[in-house]
Each structure stands twice: as structure tokens, then as C-alpha cells.
Amino acid sequence: MSTSDLWGDLTGLETVTSPREVLEEQGAILAKKTHGKLRGDVRDLTQADTFIYALDIVAPGLNDYRYTVLTVRHGITMYPLLMLSGSDDAIPQARIKCDDEQELIDALSRVLGSSKTKRAIASLLAQMRAG
């Protein structure tokens, strides 16, 4: 019947960065900071209507050994988002709820900069040197 445009004005929609893109950016930064010795890899673990992404540290020098630093999961609206990571002194909550992109970045900063993540990175670099 009707062929008129019922979508309304889509110009000027807010440009948002998806959580997956945020994770991928951090993955690329790790590769740059370690001169390719380690890289961050985002795995898509989406189940049904829940979008799930894992951020892994991959060590090419150790047969592509993987260490999952965290996973995030969200619905179609992206936020609120739930981040799951291993517990650590700096992150008493292994389950962090983020209500917007800034909270995601804050939570990522705490997890990626935690002593636990640094220990993992140091251990992988040391084992690659030893190997």
C-alpha cells in the first residue's frame, strides 16, 4: 500500500563507537606498544540476542597462546553493558556494569592497567624471550 518513507530523518544521528570497536582499538594499541610481540584480539561470542565479545592477548611467539583479559556483553542498545574480568586487588568487582561509553573506557582502563594484566603481559614477554 504505502511506499512513503516512514523512517523519519536519519541524518544527524549520534555517531557512537560500539564496544567491540573500543576493544579492537585497545587490541591494536597493545600490538603497537609491544612491537607486535603481543596483540589484542577480539573474539565474537554472541549468543542469541546477547552480544558478547572477549578481548584476548595473543602471543604469536608462543604458538598463538591466548589469554582472555575480559569479556563484555550487551543487548542491541549497547548500554548498559556488563564487563566480566578476573578479580584483582585493583578490581574487587569482577563484574562491572557500564552505563555509557565513558564508563566502559574507565572500566577498561582499570582492567587493562591492573597489576594482574601487567603480570600476564610480563610473563608472556618473558616466556617468549626464554623460548
Binding site: 572477549a54 608462543l62 604458538n63 597462546y65 591466548r66 589469554y67 582472555t68 574480568s85 578476573g86
Partner: peptide
């Protein structure tokens, strides 16, 4: 022994 993947738990 070849480590493959470590994750949460």
C-alpha cells in the same frame, strides 16, 4: 605441554 588458552576460570 602446550598452553593454548587461559580465560576467566
Amino acid at each position: 605441554v602446550r598452553p593454548i588458552h587461559d580465560g576467566y576460570g
